[in-house]
Design a protein around this nucleic acid. Structure first.
Lengths: 145, 145
DNA sequence: TTCGTTGCAAAAGGTTTGCATACCA
DNA sequence: TGGTATGCAAACCTTTTGCAACGAA
């Protein structure tokens, strides 16, 4: 087997210093991160990478199905490495950004059944769950307005 | 009863020529429309309304729960009048934009159960379904590449 | 008359692109 | 060496905001 574990899914993916750095930082993210945040982290680390390159790399990863993407209320895209094959759905805390994968078999089955019932083909679905996590709720309770 | 059917949900909603026009065009939309599209339609109709006003009106309608909103891949927001109380989910054709409401009880129940299981509170969910509608599929079949 | 609304212009964000340069394979 | 990747600057797009003028109640 040749090529890195990242490069196998694209015909001409070159392993560059920048891409390695982006992937390293992205892998270290427990929660979703925006292109801007990744870029800031890289800059702080001393690994200077152009914002453009961050965007281009994230787009490539997205097209290759290597990251999960959610959208902020503002329209900003947030990225997170995909743990396994197949896409995941997440529950994201609106307050602190904590994210956790949730079991979405129910939704997957529902989407399939909708496809059957409507005559639509090639159905894709996006599911975004947000809420307030337990810790943030406790903080809220401890600091009443 | 006083006030228009639109104005009941906001403390100080004035019925202006522009808002009436926007609501009229929006009501006539079978499918989702962007602010830009609504503005273009209004302009073509001869009802000159500022793009800013379209945005502000749509935002007010959104906050009042009077429209359903979906997000394009680009991040652009698309609006559609909400037929009844409570939010709806739609299946939207990626080719022609045709949209139809779908029964989403399954998803609603799933979201509720996730809330129970995770300890998250105030859970909100976004579900977006896209596909290729029957008509577009037939067109595709009739016009092979 | 009063105060919410409008519309222009400009700003604000996030994301993409043109193009010359740098660099991996 | 050849072709891809990079990065800067600038363009793009959608959405928001400042502010003076307007108009509904």
């Amino acid at each position: 087997m040749h090529g890195s574990s990242v490069g196998e899914w694209l015909p001409a993916w070159r392993s560059t210093q920048q891409r390695v750095a982006i992937l390293r930082v992205l892998s270290g993210c427990r929660d979703f991160a925006s292109a801007r945040e990744l870029h800031a982290t890289l800059t702080l680390e001393g690994t200077a990478v152009g914002l453009t390159t961050v965007y281009r790399t994230l787009r490539a990863l997205e097209q290759g199905g290597r990251v999960d993407v959610v959208r902020e209320r503002t329209g900003e895209r947030l990225y997170r490495p995909r743990p396994t094959d197949g896409h995941r759905h997440y529950l994201v805390c609106r307050r602190c950004g904590l994210s956790r994968p949730v079991d979405a078999d129910t939704v997957e089955r529902w989407a399939d059944s909708v496809a059957d019932a409507t005559g639509f083909a090639e159905i894709e679905h996006t599911v975004e769950l947000t809420g307030i996590c337990e810790q943030c709720r406790l903080l809220d309770a401890a600091t009443p307005s």
